[in-house]
Simulated scan of single mutants.
Amino acid sequence: MKKNLTIVIAALIVAAMAIPASAAKLTLSGAYSAGWTYDTRVWTPTNLAEASKLTLKLEFTEGESIVAYLPLTVKPFVGEPEVAVGSWYFSYATAPFSFWVSPNDPWNAKQFSALGDPLGIGAKLGGGVVLNAKGNILGAGLNIYAAGLATGAEAYLGRATYGLPAEFTLGLVGAYTVTDPETDPDELILGADVVGPIPGIGGNITVAGAAQLSKPYDSTWGFEGMPSNDNYAYRLALTDIAVGPVTKAWASYTAVGGMFTDPYKASPASAPGAVLNKYAGKAAAEVGVT
């Protein structure tokens, strides 16, 4: 472990020396702690060899575009120490795309954010090594995630949005999951949505739909539909409609097939944006005023 720590620190120093000093900065901060006891007016160490530890935080920056953060804990600080790596991340902000990679911990500065599609297909992602690429190309906004999850599965999620005439926005979303290529089928969810204002009414309309497909492990020719045709989800919603004195009326029709399963949907059913969870296996027509 000490050898690995030396390699990491050396790599950061070499990276800092490889670019102009005015642009790069390597920051090191830390704290040492140990246990002590008070007995008969005397302070004495409490098993100092095992109770002591050193925490270090290394941060390498180059202007505002590159940031590498590596927290380390050396414990115990004497004897045969072990080095534990904390919630690290590396980010590279540039145009037209920015990138980051991290273990996707809840307390990490770089972590997964919901894709924002109307059905909530890409609402959450578990822990693991996650890579994100985000930017604009040919007028479309792209947000893509690739993850090696702690469960052993591989996950690929992404969303693209494109502005249409009359202030409408077209969205495409996808989620591809690989569990065990030799025994379990790969799962693919594809969805599309259109969101925009309703001419003459002053409200907004959302039309969204998605289907789930499965690729058997022994198939190489392509994706096959699920055993049941109940592998779809769709939603039509009218919001912020002005009707007489009412300015915030809404109406919606939502259906989620019983065979439509999404490991990345929001939960529980009462959570914001948990459309797939709330309407799982059923359909509902609703109207209301807010």
Score class of each variant (00 low, 15 high):
G135L: 01
A237R: 01
L236E: 01
G191I: 09
I189G: 05
G191H: 10
Q212W: 10
G120R: 00
G158Q: 06
L170S: 04
V195R: 11
N204R: 14
S219G: 08
D193E: 10
G171V: 00
A140C: 02
L190E: 04
P118C: 12
Y217I: 09
I189M: 07
G152C: 08
Q212K: 15
G126P: 00
F168Y: 15
P199V: 09
D180G: 06
E187Q: 14
L236M: 02
T169P: 00
L142D: 10
V129F: 12
T183G: 00
D117H: 11
G244Q: 07
Y162M: 05
V243K: 05
S252R: 12
T169V: 15
L157C: 12
D186F: 05
Y162S: 04
E187R: 13
E154C: 05
G126Q: 01
T206F: 08
G196D: 05
V129S: 11
Y217T: 13
T161V: 11
E182Y: 15
P227Y: 04
W250A: 07
D186K: 14
L170I: 03
L149W: 02
I205M: 14
G203P: 00
G191V: 09
G202H: 08
L119S: 02
L149Q: 13
R235P: 03
G225V: 02
E187I: 12
V246L: 15
A237N: 00
T177P: 00
A208N: 00
P227C: 04
A140S: 10
N204A: 11
P165G: 05
N136S: 14
G163R: 04
Y217H: 15
P216C: 08
A192K: 04
L125A: 11
V194A: 12
V129K: 11
S219I: 13
N143T: 12
D218T: 14
P245F: 02
G196Y: 06
F223E: 02
R235N: 11
K124T: 15
L238D: 05
M226I: 05
K215F: 02
A251D: 06
E167T: 12
D230C: 10
F168D: 08
N143L: 13
I201H: 08
R159L: 01
K124V: 15
R159E: 06
G171K: 03
G163L: 03
G200N: 10
L170V: 01
A123S: 15
G126I: 02
T220K: 13
N231C: 02
L188F: 13
A146V: 11
V178P: 04
L131E: 10
P185T: 03
A146P: 01
D240V: 08
L170C: 08
L149I: 07
N231I: 00
A160H: 03
G135D: 01
A242E: 07
G126S: 03
E167I: 05
T177F: 14
A233S: 11
D193H: 07
V207A: 15
G120A: 01
I241Y: 07
G171A: 03
